[in-house]
Design a protein around this nucleic acid. Structure first.
Lengths: 202, 202
DNA sequence: ACCTGAACACCGTTCAAGT
DNA sequence: ACCTGAACACCGTTCAAGT
């Protein structure tokens, strides 16, 4: 368990206050404008110089990562819990629904996450890779018991869930179809139907 | 059949030449940089003033639409052909593969198309809606014969294919998995497995 | 009729100057 | 140690001035 970029202790009081205010404002602005929101706008609305925002969050991803860390950690823990308490196919189904909800929290978030996934140095990318691996373990469980198709990888599955989340972004026309579209994906991940049993009186 | 924005006849020779050059350059630049490429850059490389680009293509969508029209028309015709020559499920499978290829021709294209789909005045949006409707007809055929699940609409399906295309964009890590991921989606669109026949000697 | 590029209002990012 | 905002290099978009 890596703890990247913990809340800096021993900050000056004004620094601490600025950081908190930036995060609070960013949450609102991202909810309104999506992950491509203007950083200038966030600084402005937080009553802070633009350089202050950059000092606390040197990249847009760093800001996103801080906003999402809590939810992402929860998702990683959820995967473990479901693994212990449910059959592999059911665990996979529930977890992918939760993942779609988390990855689609803001407009533009799925594609931000997909982009970060590749970036080697990005803390946000590291969080994504951790989630992807947690999902891959659930998938493997299901595959080992014949409850998921064999020709799909954890990478495939993570990308597919992100894709579904991206068409069901908040505010969009498919927002309230998200669960259903994830269901369609889950059915696609199911193992191929077994051949029918031989007929009687063969 | 609407023919929006046909190639303007009776243009001045220089206008015609500029238009052609812009389109040729745009094809290259979009292939390199995706649909978010700088319009300034396109004008520059076409050896044309920025205003000239805007005169010929008042919006980015208008430029995209002109570039894509041919392929989109071909896709619409393909839907009709497949309808006449194949079983509904096979027609759907082949057409969605072709659609994914077309909608993913450039980086960023799937999300450009999804955005245009909503825009009422956009010619690109109109092209998308035509494709979506062509797909909806294929889906309906399949549904009527029990070859596709009932709880999915043409809108759902079009969005899902676009989503899969967006994760398999050219140059990306999933580019060569596109057909396979579309296959997963197709399996998700299949009707639920019928209950097994009653056992013998019941 | 068409072309041009300067002008405007925005970005993201950096950094010298302040406290 | 931290904050500020001007400065720079880019955008997209518009439009007066040219031919």
């Amino acid at each position: 368990m890596v703890d990247t970029d913990p809340v800096p202790r021993g900050q000056r009081a004004d620094a601490r206050r600025n950081r908190d205010e930036i995060l609070a404002v960013a949450r609102d602005v991202l909810a309104e404008q999506g992950t491509q929101a203007s950083l200038r706008d966030i600084a402005r609305r937080a009553g802070v110089g633009l350089g202050t925002l950059y000092r606390h969050f040197p990249t847009r991803d760093a800001l996103l990562e801080t906003l999402l860390r809590e939810g992402f950690d929860r998702l990683a823990r959820l995967a473990e819990t479901l693994r212990e308490t449910h059959a592999p196919d059911e665990a996979l189904a529930r977890w992918l629904q939760a993942l779609a909800a988390g990855a689609g929290a803001y407009r533009g978030l799925p594609s931000s996450l997909a982009a970060a996934l590749g970036e080697p140095g990005s803390a946000l990318g590291a969080s994504c890779r951790a989630l992807r691996d947690a999902g891959a373990r659930l998938l493997l469980d299901a595959q080992e018991r014949g409850l998921a198709r064999q020709d799909v990888t954890g990478e495939d599955m993570f990308a597919l869930v992100g894709a579904v989340a991206s068409i069901a972004e908040p505010g969009g026309p498919f927002a309230d179809r998200r669960d259903h579209l994830v269901r369609v994906l889950l059915d696609g991940l199911a193992p191929p139907a077994p051949p029918p049993p031989p007929a009687c009186h063969a």
